[in-house]
Structure formats: structure tokens, C-alpha cells
Design a protein around this nucleic acid. Structure first.
Length: 748
DNA sequence: GCAGACTCACTTTTT
DNA sequence: GTGAGTCTGC
């Protein structure tokens, strides 16, 4: 097999050792995907039926790339491989085995928005305060439990968990977990975690089913193994228990999904579960320059939890890492944009060789603006996905409800949209009846006269009839015809068409775009299942694929570091390198996990092939307020000799007085030439030293650098903010958020 | 039942 | 700066 000859010694070993448990520790840029591809090709070359090979990844992107590359090596045989994300493969298995769990095979998949909305609904019905039980927090508790294979019964019966919840003043979490699970079950719906958790139940409680899949999947491969949670690990272990041909590939240094329940211990302890394990370490980096590899190694070496390995490269030293310093987030955008502009000239780069990586999606805004101003084309990966938009979700809710009449979330979304005269009280009545009688919503709807006789029932009967008609179409026609009819018949298309505002127009276009997507779906050659059900199944697990279309265009890529995993670019910009932002304040305070942030930084740095630029701003808008920022500690964690200060930073800087509020931003030019202060800004007098406001109380006299003296009228707390209402002399009352306002306490 | 006004939380990452 | 949820008056 000639393709193997192009590999180095370790890579070869990792490819040909196909029998028994194998762990491949693949450093960044070490040709991991190549090894995986060749390994599968090698298996098939040995005569293994692709039908018997299961390959699991985390993202759709990774799955697609793998399939493409295998197809290039082995041709169309690759089609029969079982390859996909954990969620999509297990969803497929669950669909065919749903009856064993009491689910309908056309079960709906709830995304996080549906999940939170259902939790909110349950909270309301049970008179629980959604401040103590924040939906997002309840969700993550439930999610974490499922990821750790804890059922609601076990949750409620565990004295440890109960004590913990009681201590946190949230004793109802177990009950919420129970109610939520029952509600999902009744709605014929599974959330993302259920796709994994229910698969684990399926394999645990139905040995015949497990045996069937164990026999089918003679070879199991798991990519990005460092990101698996206990539930995923449990399932793969079960699947591979008979043949023991399990191959996991990962890099502990790139484990960045602990927040989602990923357990780095899975990779660190894998050897304990498989004493006969063969371990291969791919340590040669083919991607990056020596400077980049060394800086990355420096940083990651600060972490304690890691497997020993020595990533090295035979590549050139390369350029030094450039550091840009800006005064504000907008200025950072401008510096990055002009650096991209210059870099393209001097290094002969195309836009698509360049990526800008950030910690949070919200940081894309300032970069986007600057790029647009300089006419540099860009694309954004991630953020709000197409399928998350309201108009799309509305239409999809119709599709979902047509297919699965039990789907309560879809029902609530569409029952009175577009407006058809069914008010909240009617909806509440239906839900209460469904609950009291333990009957599905659909049954109540079909006998609505029994619940509310008279006029109020008429629009509901109309609604039921419309859905019934949709159902007939869906059963007889393909996805495209079904969606077209539902878009029209539901009135959504008309509603949006009549909205002539700019947003309305773009919503209408989005619905058209969805129609196009369905068209494309049914037109795909070799697609066996062209039904609406198949389409829904596909899109409910889709998040980042919507950018597929312009993938080949020459555009600069903007994305979060998380979504950059697995990619590489000639020139990478890592922006927003500020303490509290990256490493993230939230991560540090909530989980005290600096190491994961450091791994995230490692991932960002190792995306770069030739050029790497860091940037940070000394002040930035966050939470709608301007905050001053310190450079990130990560900038100090590698040898400073790798760093080159940007030209712009060497120019004399305008000494900027400490300003506490500024609604205007400085342009890049301001760095060099002093500008008159923007009207909206004010500067604290040099001698103004703010006091500690934690002792602030009603009745105290304070001084504000701009508003002068005032009297504290009221103190209150809303959300995370402590606020003080102060009456300033001659200015009247103002409410200030204490974490931002600088006050000097004068007397009590 | 509905529209517009209003309030408030939320900005960590993804399937 | 935004979007979703709630309140209020017709």
C-alpha cells in the first residue's frame, strides 16, 4: 500500500496496528487526520467491510472532512462507513431502536433553546423563582447529570447530591430533573444529552441490541478523545467490548470542552481500562514554524495535568510573533485590519490564508467593522446559526409539529403564530387539560369542543385541520414539497412577505434560503430518504455547516478558538488577549480552571503555520460598559524573545489620562496625534482617589469625579450589579452601577 | 386578545 | 446593545 510510505515511522505504526486497543496521542499539527484516514484505508485494504467500521467525531466539520479524505484514498466504498458525530450516529441508532425505550421513532430533537423554554415553563407551572432556578443553570445541572450517567432517580436518591443542592439553596433541582425528563418523554423529544444518555440506557438494558451493534462495529475509532464525557466513553467502551478493536485519538493538551462535561481523565486513565493498550505518540509538528511551536510548548508546559510528550518541528524558525496593542476594542479591529492588509502584501497571502480567533463570539463585531471599512472580505463561522433565527425556528416548529404531534415546544411556538386568535388562556387551558388527563396535547386538540365548547374552539379546530392536511402531504411527498406547502399553508410566508421593513425582508429571504436548502437536500444524488423527517433529523444536529457554501471563497475567517480546532491557517491573529477576557473571568471564578483556558490558548497558537499575531486592547466594552483591561497573563508565559513589538507600539504614545467613562473611541491616528477629548468623556482629577464602595450605604455623602457631590438615596441589587441611587447637587438623581462608577465616600 | 411600552438579564465555549 | 419576557391599557 503505497500511501503508507509517505508517513514517518510512528505514523506508520499507528496506521498498521489495527488489532486490539490503541491510543494515539497526536500533538497539534502532527498529521492526525492523515493517520486516521490511512488507518481506515488500511483496514479496508485488508478486506474489512466498511460497514463494520465506526468512526466517531465531535463536529460535523470533522466528520465531513474525514469522509472526503477517505473517499479520495479508497473511492466510493467510503460511503458505507459509519462515520459521524457522536450525536448523529447515536440519533440514527436511537431512531431505529426507539420503541425499546418507549419513544416514537420520529422523536424530535430539542436544541438548547427548546430545552430552556421548557424548563422555564416547568418553573412557572411549579411556582419556582426563575432567579434562584435560572433556566440555564438548571439545564447545565441536568446536562451534567446525564453526562455522568446519573438518572433523575439516582439524582434524587443520592444523599451527596441532595446535600450539595440543599447547601446551595436549590433543593428542587432533583424534582426539576424528573419533571423535565417526563415532559420530554411525553413530548416525544430528546435533547442533545438524551441522544447520548438514552443510547447508554439502550445498551445497558437491552443486551440483544448491544450485541447487534457490537457485531456490526468490529472496529471503533474515536477522534478528539480528550473531549469525550463519561457517557460517551461508556458507550464506546460497551460497543468495543467484544472485539476490543478500539482506537482513540486525541491530544490532552487540546482538551477544551470540560464545560460540556468532557473529562480529561478519560484520556489520562485510558491505559487502566486496557492493560494491553498500545500507545503511539505523534510528536513531530508539520504545521508550524519553530517560533510558534516553541511558544506553544512554553505556555502549555505551565499546566500540571498532562501526558508527557515532546512536540518538535523540523520547520524553519519563521517570523517572530507580533504583538499589537490598542486603546480600545474598535482600535484593535483597525490595527488587525490594517495588519492584515499589509501582511497580504508583504507575505503574498490570500484572504483565506488568514484567520482571526477570539475567545467569545461577541468580539467579532469590532473586527468585522474594521474589515468592512477596509474592504477586506471575511466570513464568520459560528455565532448565531442560520437555524437559530426566529423565522427559521418558527417554520421548523411547524415541520416538527406536523411530524410529531406530541412536540409541546413546537406546539407552543406555533399555536398562535401567525396570529389566529388563540390567546394565552386558551393555550393554558389545553396544556392544563393535557396534564390533568395525562393525555397527549394532540388528543385534546382533536376533541377541543369537550374542553372549551363554543366560539373559542373554532380557531383551534382550524389549526388542527391545517396540521392534519400538512401531515397528509408529508406522508406522501418529499421534503421540498412538504416544506413549501407548510411555509405557505401556515401563513408564515405571507406574514413575512407583508413585512416590508428591512428586517422583514431579510426574514423572508431567510425562509427562501431554507427552501433552497431543502431543495438541495432532496436533489442530492444517492440520497435514499428524501422525506421531511430525514431533513429535520439532519438539520437538528447541524450548527456550523451553514457556511459550507462560501468555504472556497477568498475570505478572511473569523471565529472563536473553540470552532478553530482542527483547522490551520498561514497567518493567525489571536485577539482580545486581556486578563478576565482570555483567560475568561467566568471560567476562572466559576470553575477555577486556568488550565483549560491555557489549553485553549494553546489551540489558538497552534492553528498558525507561518505567522502569528497577538493583540489586546487597554480598554474594551463589555456588558455594555467600558472597562479598562490588563494584558493577558498568557503573554508572559512564553520566552519574550519570540515576541516582536509592533511598529505602532514603538511610536511615542499619547499619555492618556485615566478616564472612567468614554462613549467615544479613538482612531488609530489618535495613537500618534493627541486629539481633543471627545465631548462625552470626562477625566477624573489627578488627585481623585475612589473609595471602596462595598461599604456604601444609604445616607452617605459621596463625590463623583464628574457629577460632584451627592447623597446616597437608595441601594439595591439587580442581577449581579450593585446599584446606588444618588442625588447629586444641582443634577438630580442618578443610578450608578457600583462596579463601574468611581466614587469617593466623604462622610456618613 | 392584542399592541406597544417596559424591564431585565445577558454576553464562554458546542452537539 | 439586544432580545425575550412581562405589564398595561385598549
Amino acid at each position: 500500500m503505497s500511501f503508507i510510505d509517505s508517513l514517518n515511522e510512528v505514523q506508520k505504526e499507528a496506521v498498521v496496528n489495527t488489532e486490539g486497543p490503541v491510543m494515539i496521542i497526536a500533538g497539534a499539527g502532527s498529521g492526525k487526520t492523515r493517520v486516521l484516514t490511512y488507518r481506515i484505508a488500511h483496514l479496508m485494504g485488508k478486506g474489512v467491510d466498511p460497514f463494520n467500521i465506526l468512526s466517531l467525531t465531535f463536529t460535523n466539520k470533522a466528520a465531513r472532512e474525514m469522509r472526503d479524505r477517505i473517499e479520495k484514498v479508497v473511492g466510493t466504498d467510503a460511503r458505507n462507513l459509519w462515520m459521524g458525530t457522536f450525536h448523529s450516529v447515536f440519533a440514527r441508532i436511537l431512531r431505529s431502536e426507539a420503541d425499546k425505550l418507549g419513544y416514537p421513532s420520529n422523536f424530535t430533537i430539542y436544541d438548547s433553546e427548546d430545552t430552556k423554554s421548557l424548563i422555564r415553563q416547568i418553573l412557572k407551572e411549579n411556582n419556582l423563582d426563575d432567579k434562584t432556578y435560572k433556566p440555564s443553570m438548571v439545564y447545565s445541572r441536568i446536562s451534567a447529570a446525564k453526562n455522568r450517567l446519573i438518572s433523575w432517580k439516582e439524582y434524587i436518591n443520592s444523599p451527596i447530591i441532595q446535600a450539595e443542592d440543599a447547601e446551595n439553596m436549590r433543593p428542587e433541582l432533583g424534582r426539576l430533573y424528573k419533571l423535565y425528563s417526563e415532559r420530554c418523554f411525553k413530548s416525544g423529544a430528546m435533547d442533545f444529552d438524551d441522544l447520548l444518555y438514552n443510547t447508554s440506557l439502550l445498551f445497558k438494558n437491552h443486551t440483544d441490541v448491544l450485541n447487534k451493534y457490537q457485531n456490526r462495529f468490529k472496529y471503533v475509532m474515536v477522534d478528539e478523545f480528550q473531549d469525550t464525557n463519561l457517557c460517551q466513553y461508556y458507550i464506546t467502551k460497551k460497543l468495543a467490548a467484544q472485539n476490543r478493536n478500539i482506537c482513540v485519538v486525541g491530544d490532552d493538551a487540546q482538551s477544551i470542552y470540560a464545560f460540556r462535561g468532557a473529562d480529561i481523565q478519560n484520556i489520562l486513565n485510558f491505559e487502566k481500562d486496557y492493560p494491553e493498550l498500545k500507545v503511539f505518540k505523534l510528536e513531530q509538528n508539520y504545521r508550524s514554524t519553530k517560533v510558534i511551536v516553541s511558544a506553544a510548548n512554553d505556555v502549555i508546559s505551565k499546566n500540571k495535568a498532562q501526558l508527557k510528550k515532546d512536540v518538535w518541528t523540523a520547520n524553519d524558525d519563521g517570523n517572530l510573533i507580533e504583538l499589537l496593542k490598542a486603546n480600545s476594542d474598535n482600535e484593535e479591529g483597525k490595527l488587525v485590519a490594517s495588519s492584515i492588509f499589509e501582511g497580504k502584501m508583504s507575505f503574498q497571502l490570500r484572504n483565506k490564508d488568514i484567520a482571526v480567533l477570539y475567545r467569545t463570539n461577541s468580539q467579532s463585531r469590532s473586527i468585522e467593522e474594521a474589515l468592512r471599512r477596509m474592504n477586506i472580505k471575511y466570513r464568520i463561522v459560528g455565532g448565531m446559526s442560520f437555524y437559530q433565527r426566529k423565522e427559521i425556528k418558527d417554520l421548523i416548529a411547524y415541520l416538527r409539529f406536523t411530524i410529531n404531534h406530541q412536540d409541546e415546544e413546537a406546539f407552543r411556538r406555533i399555536i398562535n403564530y401567525p396570529k389566529r386568535g388563540i390567546g394565552d388562556s386558551s393555550v393554558a387551558k389545553i396544556l392544563v387539560h393535557a396534564d390533568e388527563q395525562g393525555a397527549p396535547i394532540w388528543d385534546i386538540l382533536c376533541n377541543i369542543q369537550a374542553v372549551m365548547p363554543g366560539r373559542a374552539a373554532v380557531p383551534i379546530e382550524d389549526f388542527t385541520n391545517v396540521i392534519k392536511a400538512f401531515k397528509i402531504t408529508v406522508d406522501n411527498k418529499d421534503a421540498f414539497d412538504s416544506v413549501t406547502e407548510i411555509a405557505k399553508g401556515s401563513g408564515i410566508l405571507k406574514e413575512l412577505y407583508e413585512d416590508k421593513t428591512v428586517e422583514g425582508l431579510s426574514r423572508y429571504e431567510n425562509v427562501q434560503a431554507l427552501l433552497n436548502a431543502v431543495k438541495e437536500f432532496v436533489d442530492t444524488p444517492d440520497r435514499e430518504d428524501k422525506t421531511l423527517g430525514a431533513f429535520l433529523q439532519e438539520i437538528s444536529l447541524l450548527t456550523d455547516a451553514d457556511n459550507e457554501k462560501d468555504k472556497d471563497d477568498d475570505k478572511v475567517t473569523l471565529m472563536t478558538i473553540h470552532s478553530s480546532k482542527g483547522l490551520e491557517f498561514k497567518h493567525v491573529y489571536v485577539v482580545g488577549l486581556e486578563e478576565d477576557l482570555f483567560p475568561s473571568q467566568m471560567m476562572l471564578s466559576s470553575r477555577e480552571d486556568l488550565e483549560e483556558e491555557r489549553r485553549l490558548f494553546y489551540v489558538a497558537v497552534t492553528r498558525a503555520e507561518k505567522h502569528l499575531t497577538f493583540s489586546y486592547a487597554t480598554s474594551r466594552y463589555r456588558f455594555g460598559r467600558l472597562k479598562s483591561c490588563e494584558p493577558s497573563r498568557f503573554l508572559t508565559e512564553f520566552d519574550p524573545r519570540y515576541l516582536k513589538l509592533s511598529k505602532k507600539m514603538l511610536e511615542p504614545e499619547t499619555p492618556e489620562p485615566v478616564s472612567y467613562v468614554r462613549t467615544n473611541t479613538t482612531t488609530a491616528k489618535n495613537l500618534i496625534q493627541p486629539q481633543p477629548k471627545p465631548k462625552t468623556s470626562y477625566v477624573a482629577p489627578a488627585d481623585f482617589k475612589p473609595s471602596d464602595t462595598s461599604v456604601l450605604q444609604q445616607g452617605m455623602k459621596v463625590e463623583h469625579p464628574k457629577f460632584g457631590f451627592g447623597l446616597v438615596k437608595k441601594m439595591d441589587v439587580s442581577g449581579n450589579d450593585r446599584k446606588a441611587t444618588i442625588e447629586f447637587d444641582g443634577l438630580g438623581e442618578k443610578t450608578l452601577i457600583l462596579s463601574f462608577a468611581k466614587l469617593r465616600i466623604h462622610e456618613q
